[in-house]
C-alpha cells in the first residue's frame, strides 16, 4: 500500500547518501541532493544546447523559449545595472536558470514506490545551498566593488547628503543592512521552497488519512486534493518568482558595485 505509510512532512528534505565519497577527511558523498543538482544542470544544459543546435534566423519553439529566457535576463541586467552590467550577464543568467530549474524540478511528484532516497528532491530547499549562492553573489559584489572603485566602494555606506552628525548612525544602519543581504537573499528562497513543500506534504497526508478513515469521511479527501492542485499551481508561480527575485536582487546589489559613487 504505497502512500499509506505517510512520511512526515520533513522527511522529503532528508539528505540520503547514494554513493559514499570523501576528499581527505571531508565527506563529499554523492547524495540525493547532489543527484538532483546534477539532474537540474543536465536538464537545463540539454535544453539550451538543443535550443542552439540550429541557430535559425526564424527560431523554432525550443530556440524561441531559450531566446525569451536570454532576453528576459538581459533586460533584467540592463534595467538594473545598465549596459556596463552586461559583463555579469552570464553569471546572472546561470544563477537564474539554475535556481529556476531546481525549483521546478522539485515540484514533480515522486514516482510511487521509488526506493529510499530517490524521491523528488528540491535542492533549493536547503539553506546551505541558497546561502552559498547568496554568498557567491555578495562576494562578486564586494570583489568587483573594490576592484572597480577601490576604497571609494566604502561610500556605499555613506550616502551623500546626510548631515554629518547623522553619519555614524547611517553608516551603522547601512553596514548592518549590507551584512543582512546574503541572509535575506538565502532565507527568502529557502523558506519559500521549504514552506511550499511542507504545505504540499501536509495536504497529501490529509488525503491519505481521510481516505484511510473509510466511507464516513473518505469522500472528504477531495478537499485536500483540490488544495494540492491549487498549491501546486501557486508553487509553480513561486518557483519562477523566487528565481526571478534572487536574480534581480543580485543585479541590484551588483549595481551598487558598478555605481558605488551615486546613490
Amino acid at each position: 500500500m504505497i502512500g499509506l505509510n505517510a512520511a512526515g512532512p520533513m522527511e522529503q528534505f532528508e539528505i540520503v547518501p547514494l554513493v559514499p565519497l570523501s576528499l581527505g577527511t571531508i565527506d563529499i558523498s554523492l547524495t540525493n541532493s547532489a543527484l538532483w543538482m546534477i539532474i537540474a544542470v543536465a536538464v537545463s544544459a540539454a535544453f539550451f544546447l538543443a535550443a542552439i543546435r540550429r541557430r535559425a534566423l526564424v527560431p523554432g519553439p525550443l530556440q524561441s523559449t531559450a531566446e525569451v529566457a536570454y532576453e528576459f535576463v538581459a533586460d533584467m541586467v540592463r534595467g538594473a545595472i545598465g549596459q556596463e552590467g552586461m559583463k555579469f550577464f552570464p553569471y546572472v543568467f546561470t544563477l537564474f536558470i539554475f535556481i529556476l530549474t531546481a525549483n521546478l524540478l522539485g515540484l514533480f511528484p515522486t514516482i510511487p514506490g521509488a526506493p529510499h532516497g530517490l524521491h523528488t528532491f528540491t535542492t533549493t530547499s536547503h539553506i546551505i545551498v541558497t546561502f552559498a549562492l547568496a554568498i557567491l553573489s555578495i562576494s562578486i559584489v564586494i570583489v568587483y566593488g573594490f576592484y572597480k572603485n577601490g576604497l571609494g566602494f566604502l561610500k556605499l555606506f555613506a550616502p551623500s547628503g546626510v548631515p554629518i552628525w547623522l553619519l555614524p548612525l547611517i553608516v551603522l544602519i547601512e553596514f548592518v543592512s549590507f551584512l543582512s543581504r546574503p541572509l535575506s537573499l538565502s532565507i527568502r528562497l529557502f523558506a519559500n521552497m521549504l514552506a511550499g513543500h511542507v504545505i504540499l506534504k501536509v495536504f497529501a497526508t490529509f488525503i491519505v488519512m481521510l481516505f484511510g478513515a473509510g466511507a464516513t469521511f473518505g469522500w472528504l479527501s477531495i478537499f485536500p486534493f483540490l488544495g494540492i492542485v491549487a498549491v501546486t499551481l501557486l508553487e509553480l508561480l513561486v518557483a519562477f518568482l523566487q528565481a526571478y527575485v534572487f536574480a534581480i536582487l543580485t543585479c541590484i546589489y551588483l549595481n551598487d558595485a558598478v555605481h558605488a559613487g551615486h546613490h
Binding site: I15, P17, L21, L23, I26, D27, I28, S29, L30, T31, S33, A34, M37, I38, A40, V41, S44, A45, F48, L49, P90, Y91, F93, T94, I97, F98, T123, H126, I128, V129, A132, L133
Partner: peptide, 18 residues
C-alpha cells in the same frame, strides 16, 4: 560539505556550458 561540493561542481559546470 557534500552539498557545497556538488553545488560548486554542478553550478560551475552549468556556468561553463552557458
Amino acid at each position: 560539505p557534500s552539498q557545497l561540493f556538488w553545488l560548486a561542481v554542478t553550478f560551475g559546470f552549468l556556468y561553463w556550458i552557458m
